[in-house]
């Protein structure tokens, strides 16, 4: 037992707290509704064949169906034919819970459409944030102008304003402009990122002045310096910012819920989760958790790929 065992203990407890919801999410996405309700089946569930009652209900044979099937079942009564057809339907509608959950996730709601919306919104937000934040950060870090410290103070002040405080005025503004229920409403309010400006400014402070002067001697204008010199040297910091920005807006439920009121074509993935919120007839936790798993997977994969550079970016160790 090392002397630092208590540190590991605290960390392990922390990990359990963080991991538990993910464990539940992934586990539920594998299980049948019964297993979820009764809390059985371990992590993967028993994966026994289950019958989808809705699928069967949809195949409830009509009179015409029975008449059409009479050839296949010669000499049997209508009642027997109907039972035979129902049995066939049950066979066709039986599947493993994992298949049920994930196929429901994609068929019940247009999840692919929601994922595409998520990509469009988060990528546009991030690109526009970079277009605004990088020149601003460059000016705040490297250019000398009257009132620079005051402007930077304002940026820091903006970091303190919670989104929810300005949500209502923003909504009214967008509504008056007739922009609710558009991609613009999802993207535009987030294009100016105080956090991005702050983070990039801190990184740019570490870039040597000589490098910028050399670029000026080489014939670059100030914008050329931002895009051709500062941007490539700031890739680690930019990646860190990308993770923050993309995670925040990919997972955002609050803002899309406010500005997208009717048009389901504009739903982002978190809004898609609502589709499985059963109102009267119970909830579809299995498909819901399958959807949630599908939604978070791209982020986790992206983070794992960018992990090393991401940590570099946060610790601001870029140039030296």
């Amino acid at each position: 037992m090392t002397r630092d065992w208590w540190k590991h203990l605290i960390l392990i407890l922390g990990v359990i707290v963080v991991i538990a919801p993910f464990y539940m999410m992934v586990s539920y996405s594998f299980k049948s509704p019964g297993e979820i309700d009764r809390g059985e089946g371990g992590f993967f569930g028993r994966q026994e064949l289950m019958i989808d009652p809705r699928c069967v209900a949809l195949r409830d044979p009509s009179r015409d169906d029975i008449a059409a099937a009479a050839d296949r079942f010669p000499g049997q009564s209508e009642r027997q034919i109907r039972d035979a057809l129902m049995a066939e339907a049950e066979v066709e509608c039986s599947m493993h819970p994992v298949v049920f959950n994930y196929s429901k996730a994609f068929t019940e709601a247009p999840l692919l459409r929601y994922l595409l919306n998520g990509v469009i919104v988060t990528v546009s937000i991030f690109l526009l944030q970079v277009v605004v934040a990088l020149p601003a950060a460059y000016a705040l870090a490297k250019l000398k102008f009257w009132g620079r410290e005051a402007v930077f103070g304002l940026v820091l002040f903006c970091l303190l304003i919670p989104v929810h405080a300005i949500a209502l005025p923003l909504y009214i503004l967008l509504a008056k402009l007739g922009l609710t229920n558009t991609y613009a409403a999802l993207v535009v309010p987030w294009t100016i990122s105080a956090f991005g400006t702050f983070l990039m400014r801190q990184f740019f402070m570490t870039v040597p002045d000589d490098l910028i002067d050399a670029a000026r001697m080489d014939g670059m204008g100030e914008f050329a310096i931002v895009w051709r010199v500062m941007l490539p040297t700031a890739i680690p910091a930019l990646l860190a910012f990308a993770i923050f920005s993309i995670v925040a807006h990919w997972n955002d439920y609050f803002w899309p819920r406010i500005v997208v009121t009717g048009n389901r074509d504009l739903f982002t993935p978190p809004l898609g989760l609502r589709e499985f919120k059963g109102d009267g007839d119970g909830s579809f936790f299995g498909p819901m958790m399958a959807t949630a798993t599908v939604i978070v997977t791209p982020l986790i994969v992206a983070f794992l790929i960018a992990q090393k550079r991401f940590i570099e970016g946060i610790t601001l160790s870029g140039m030296k």
């Binding site: 040597p208 000589d210 490098l211 002067d213 050399a214 670029a215 001697m217 010199v229 490539p232 040297t233 890739i235 140039m319």
Partner: peptide
């Protein structure tokens, strides 16, 4: 101009 720190573009 040649700078003391050379100021080469690292990328």
């Amino acid at each position: 101009m040649v700078f003391q720190s050379y100021a080469l573009y690292p990328h």
